[in-house]
Design a protein around this nucleic acid. Structure first.
Length: 615
RNA sequence: GCCAGCGUAGCUCAGUCGGUAGAGCGGCUCAUUCGUAAUGAGCAGGUCAUCGGUUCAAUUCCGAUCGCUGGCUCCA
């Protein structure tokens, strides 16, 4: 094995642990979802200080109420604060009231926060006296030369950088929210601590607002809406993280896909389809078996050959590239696929549609000559913005990730690629942040996040250079000079995965899909069965115009029919009674509650306009 | 994977300190023919997640398994 191979292998092993391959799925959960709900707090802000102090108060209360409390850390966060404990007692939400009561008492006692600066030796002594093993390790983390401070309030003394409010009495309104396990220092090999999450605000009103936001987000939870609107399900018998798309959900997905495909054809992409499985050798060449195997489903044996379910589409696209000799005249090649991939994700991280085991990437690979790359990146960014617009997303932030310490490819390649990414962002005037060293080992990347209706940011698109795969597959094109050259390869996904995107879209619209995506656009509600005939003719007319129409012919009052349609978030309801039948018109009620009377032609026109506007 | 909690009708949930379960919505049937968010009556529907243990008896207690939920360094 030559040196280069050994080096590559080392990097790959290292990266296997870092999980730095395009995952296109991001961690989700309560905390990430709300991470951007509120403005990022300034570390020196009063609220931040107060929350930090509240964390101490909570720890003090816990120390009073329970025996053998080992403290770890208790930082303020953008939403509140938490504190990690190692206690023999198992916390449950039933304990919250008692802890909150004790916290109130502690606050009312109004202890001053006293800062004590000590030497390292003194610090060790204090911690040793308290028998706080985690604190001792945390102390060791403090760099030599830094100040070491303790904060004391009442009987509670904690190693802490501060700052704090002056007295516990300054801690205002707070509430314990949840209890969760958390590994000490976040490492799986460390002991599991118990984390109490809480929040604190300066005013009751703000706390109530925050709790209301939590409640609202819960109401628009895609898992809840997915069930209520009969869009999809995940069933135990099928398997965790595997999605069943019900007819209505599938209809929406199909509309999303149609839009996506049309846009891609217009944008100079060509579609490809590739299989779900491939031979082991392919995944060896691509390197996946070296560094991504843990995330792949187990192999299957077919006629003595090992096959793997694909976790990514790239190798197949590369094989299409290599099906013939390529000239510089062929480039750039832009190949897109709605490719369904399977990845093994730990059971504990699965989450509705947002984190799954089988999903369809809206994947594309661009193969181009080095000099074309900057223009291609610009195109991709413009393209992404254009596609999002259709779905009601316009607030975008980008994150540019540059070369990590361990990386493949030459430094000047990286520089050039990174520069093209940055120039593209500037050219499109997209606000971006730079994550120095945050790129994947095989190339720099841009991740783009969009903001939803309630202000949450979701990572969606990713544009990634790849200096690794073209090498591994020994990809070539014949240049103007008649010599062989290595093409540049760019991976990109706009939605990330259709499942995840659908989940985000569902929450974004709170289930009330815009007309062009609504699985059922119009519901006809005959007032009595005398109007059934007229209803049929209205339905026929509208269906012939291509609208998605249904009817409610139950023996119910119109109020009940409307209620049902409202709950199912049907955009247009047509109430048909004798008046409408006599005049050949329709009484229109929109989802918003707006009412009007129209001719069928007028309605069709209005609806058509709304569909075309994708409003 | 790990910690904690949870799993009762299609859905949302109540209940049983061990004696095999109930509501509302939904479904079906019948009556009602109604004007912008719920007409009335009746009926059907459950191996109380699965498997094992304790017990005269388990949906209830214990254990395992499966699944779901909240989390698992915004660093003293």
């Amino acid at each position: 094995m030559d040196i280069r191979k050994i080096f590559t292998l080392k990097i790959l092993t290292y990266l296997a642990n870092q999980h730095k391959m395009i995952t296109l799925q991001k961690r989700v959960g309560f905390r990430e979802i709300f991470y951007n709900l509120l403005m990022k707090l300034d570390k020196d802000s009063d609220l931040y200080k107060m929350r930090h102090s509240a964390a101490h108060v909570m720890a003090a209360a816990v120390c009073r109420l329970y025996d053998d409390v080992q403290l770890d850390i208790g930082p303020p966060t953008n939403e509140g604060f938490y504190y990690d404990f190692d206690v023999p007692h198992r916390f449950t939400p039933e304990n919250f009231e008692a802890i909150e009561k004790e916290m109130v008492r502690f606050i009312q006692e109004d202890h001053p926060f006293e800062c004590m600066e000590v030497s390292r030796e003194e610090a060790k002594q204090i911690i040793a006296d308290q028998h706080q093993k985690y604190k001792l390790e945390r102390l060791a983390d403090i760099p030599e030369g830094d100040k070491i401070t303790f904060y004391k309030c009442g009987e509670f003394v904690d190693l802490c950088r501060g700052p704090h409010v002056e007295r516990t009495g300054h801690v205002k309104t707070f509430k314990l929210l949840s209890v969760a396990g958390s590994y000490y220092r976040g490492r799986e090999t460390n002991p599991m601590l118990q984390r109490l999450y809480a929040t604190a605000y300066n005013h009751d009103k703000e706390l109530r607002k925050y709790l209301k936001q939590l409640e609202e987000a819960k109401q628009r939870d895609h898992r809840k809406l997915g069930k209520a609107l009969d869009l999809f399900s995940i069933q135990e018998d099928v398997g965790p993280g595997l999605i069943l798309w019900h007819p209505k959900g599938a209809r929406i997905r199909s509309l999303i896909e149609d839009d996506w495909k049309q846009k891609h054809f217009h944008g100079g992409y060509k579609l490809v389809y590739t299989p779900h499985i491939g031979k082991a050798k392919l995944w060896e060449t691509s390197g996946h078996l070296g560094f991504y195997k843990e995330s792949m489903f187990a192999p299957m044996d077919i006629e003595g050959m090992e096959y793997f379910t694909k976790p990514m589409n790239c190798p197949f696209h590369i094989k299409i590239y290599q099906s013939q000799k390529r000239s510089y005249r062929d480039l750039p090649l832009r190949w897109a696929e709605l490719g369904t991939v399977y990845r093994y994700e730990k059971a504990g991280v699965l989450h509705g549609l947002l984190r799954v085991r089988g999903f369809t990437q809206d994947d594309a690979h661009i193969f181009c000559a080095p000099e074309q790359v900057e223009e291609e990146i610009k195109k991709v960014i413009r393209f992404a913005i254009d596609v999002w617009k259709d779905f009601g997303f316009s607030d975008i932030t980008a994150y540019l990730s540059t070369r990590p310490d361990k990386a493949v490819g030459e430094a000047n390649q990286w520089e050039k690629a990174t520069a093209s990414l940055e120039q593209a962002l500037q050219a499109e005037s997209i606000p971006y942040e730079v994550d120095v060293g945050g790129g994947a080992f095989y190339g720099p990347k841009i991740d783009m996040k969009v903001k939803d209706t309630i202000g949450r940011e979701w990572q969606m698109s990713t544009v990634q250079f790849d200096f690794n795969l073209p090498d591994r597959f020994n990809m070539k094109y014949v240049g103007e000079d008649g010599k062989e050259h290595r093409p540049y390869m760019v991976h990109r996904a706009l939605f990330g995965s259709l499942e995840r995107f659908f989940g985000i879209l569902l929450e974004h619209h709170a289930g009330a899909f815009p007309l062009w995506l609504a699985p059922e656009q119009i519901r006809v509600l005959p007032l009595t069965d005398h109007q059934f005939g007229y209803a049929q003719s209205v339905i026929k007319t509208l269906q012939e115009k291509g609208f998605r129409v249904s009817q409610d012919i139950r023996s119910e009052k119109v109020g009940a029919k409307i209620r049902k349609a409202q709950i199912e978030k049907v955009p247009y309801m047509l109430i048909l009674g004798p008046k409408e039948e006599d005049s050949g018109s329709v009484s229109v009620r929109r989802r918003s509650g707006d009412q009007s009377s129209m001719t069928i032609e007028g309605l069709a026109e209005t609806i058509m306009r709304e569909i075309n506007a994708k409003a």
